[in-house]
Structure formats: C-alpha cells, structure tokens
Amino acid sequence: MLRTPASRAVLRSLSSASPRSQRPILHRVSPQVQWSSQLCTLSATRPQAVALAASKTVANTFARQLVTSRVNHADIKAEKELGKQKLEPHPELVSSTSSIHPISGEVGVKEPEKEPDMLAGMKGDLKTISETFNLDNVPQQAYVIGLAGVIPYLATSLATVACAYEIHNAGTGSSLLLSEHSAELLLHILEPLQVGYGAVIISFLGAIHWGLEWAGYGGTKGYPRYAIGVIAPALAWPTILLPVEYALIAQFLTFNFLYYADTRVARMGWTPPWYGTYRFVLTFFVGAAIVVSLIGRGQIADRIGKLPSPADRINEYRENAAAEELANAAAAETAKENEE
C-alpha cells in the first residue's frame, strides 16, 4: 500500500485509539541487545558508523584471541624449559615434620620455637656415654680377655675398701667378718698385689706396640713405636719401690699417659681403628679401681701401720751394714788394746 499523508494520519489515529492494556510490556534488555539495537538504529541512520563499530568489535575479539593464544604458547614453552632442568636436592628444607605442614605454611620458613627440653642435656650425656662405650667393632676375644684382665684390679680394690671398713668400724663393734688386726694384715697383703699387677699390665701395654711393629701393622715405624714399648715398663716398675699411695698415683698417671699415646697412634693408623675406644674402656675401669683404693685407704691412713717398702728395706739394710761395720771396728780396736 502506498503511504500518503492521509494514510499516515489514519494510522496515527488507530495507534492512539488502542487500549493501554494492549501495549507491549517493555523489558530491560541486555547490553548485547542494546548494542544490536543501536547497531540497527545506526544502520538505519549512519551505515558508515555501523561498519566502523563492527570492525572495532571484530578487531577486539581477534586481539583477545591473539593474546590468549600467546599466553598459552608462553606457558607451554616455559613448562618445557622447566622440564629440561635438573632437580636439585635441598635437604635443609626437609625435616621430620616437613610433610605435615599446614596448607598456609611456607616451605623453608622456620617453625615457632618449642619449649626447651629440661632433660635435653642429660639425654645428650647418656647418648655420649653409650656411644663411647660402644665396642661393636672390637673383636669379641679381645673384649672378653681385656675385661677379664681388669678383674684382679677390681677385686683388690673392693677388698681394700672392705678392709678399710672393718678397720674403721672395729672400735664401734659393727665389724662384719674380720677383726681389726686381721683386716690390717689382709690390707698389707693386698698392697703389693695391686701395685705389682699394675706394673705388669703397664709393661704389657708397651709390649703390644712391639708386637704391632713386628707384625708390620700400619707399616714399619721403627724406633718411635719401639720407644713406646720401652717407656711403659720404664715408668711402671719403679713404682714398686714407692709407698703404696704414691705407687697407685704414679700408676694412675702412667695409665692415662699410655691411653693418650695409644689414641694418637690409633689416629695415625699404627693400630686397629677400634684400639682407641678399647683402651678407653679398660683405662676407665682401672682408673676407677685405683681411685676407689686410694679413697678407702685415705679413711684409715692414721690407724694402720705401714709395711716397709723395698726402699725402706734397702735403707734398713744399709743402716744395719753401717752399724755392723762400726761394731766390728769397735771390737777390733778393743781387741788391739787388750793385746797391748
């Protein structure tokens, strides 16, 4: 139908006459619909603007796709480069609780300090003692025989303490087995046994180095290793001439000196690796036995007599010989005077 001014007037009158209820309900449209409507409006009014807007939209979409593809491509490339790298260990970041860290925790971040363990020092000392006395690497035969060699020292030491207890409590009537006289007599028998046995053991420790030299263990060391075997008896046997207290102290120092020498040569490879630990254990028991004997004798030092030592006997022999010479000289003078 051709549109004329008359026909347009009729249509306007009909649209104004339609009821309000029949008017379409307007809903809020989305931005895309608005954009399309604007695009339609622009298409009706400005075709060039529509073409420009459409080209901008296509350009933006293409730019977003290009950026997305580049990002994805960069991630894949980075992952390939990381895959070629070699993993490096970091043990300082691993602990007994590193696998149970909370999700919010950071790897390598120090945990809050816990309350100090009051028994940590005692536990550390016990661990050190257990490691020190660990003789797993020592041959069983040497371990058994070495401990058996300590038994005479421990026996004489305990017997010395028992005798000292009997002598100390003799006046109170609380003695157990021996009288004061019997305990003192037994104590004087124990003195040369303990001192003489100590001298024998010290000499034996020096002889071990002669055996290692002859066996060629650690190579031939010559005079330095022979010297250890000579110094040991040179220090040990003069102690039998000293009073018992001084003899025990001198032997205690000699045992410690030989232990120091044995640990040094063990580090140098002159002896088996376990020899230093082995000597420490034996020296510990022997030194403890000597200290116990000295403590026991110190409690009764003013209540017992002292047996004459070899030096005392030598001095007594000299004095007797000098007195006998004087007596003979006096008798000879007297006989000469009588003859005259």
Rank of each mutant, 00 (worst) to 15 (best):
T172P: 05
E213P: 04
Y217W: 10
R225I: 07
A232P: 06
L178P: 02
G211H: 14
V200P: 04
P238C: 11
L190D: 08
A232F: 11
W210I: 06
G216H: 03
Y197Q: 12
V195E: 03
L205R: 00
S174E: 07
I231M: 11
L242C: 11
G196R: 02
A183N: 07
C163G: 02
E180D: 09
Y223L: 13
A183S: 13
A236D: 00
N169Q: 05
W210F: 09
G211N: 14
N169K: 02
R225F: 03
T160K: 01
S182H: 14
P192I: 11
G229M: 06
G211E: 13
A232E: 05
I201F: 02
G173C: 07
Y226N: 01
L178K: 03
Y165A: 10
K221N: 15
G206V: 06
L235K: 05
T239D: 03
K221Q: 14
P192W: 11
Q194F: 08
H168V: 01
Y217M: 04
I202G: 00
H188C: 15
G222W: 09
L186W: 07
Y217R: 07
V161N: 09
S182R: 08
L178S: 05
I228C: 05
A215V: 03
A234G: 14
A215D: 08
H188D: 15
A207G: 02
G211C: 13
G211P: 05
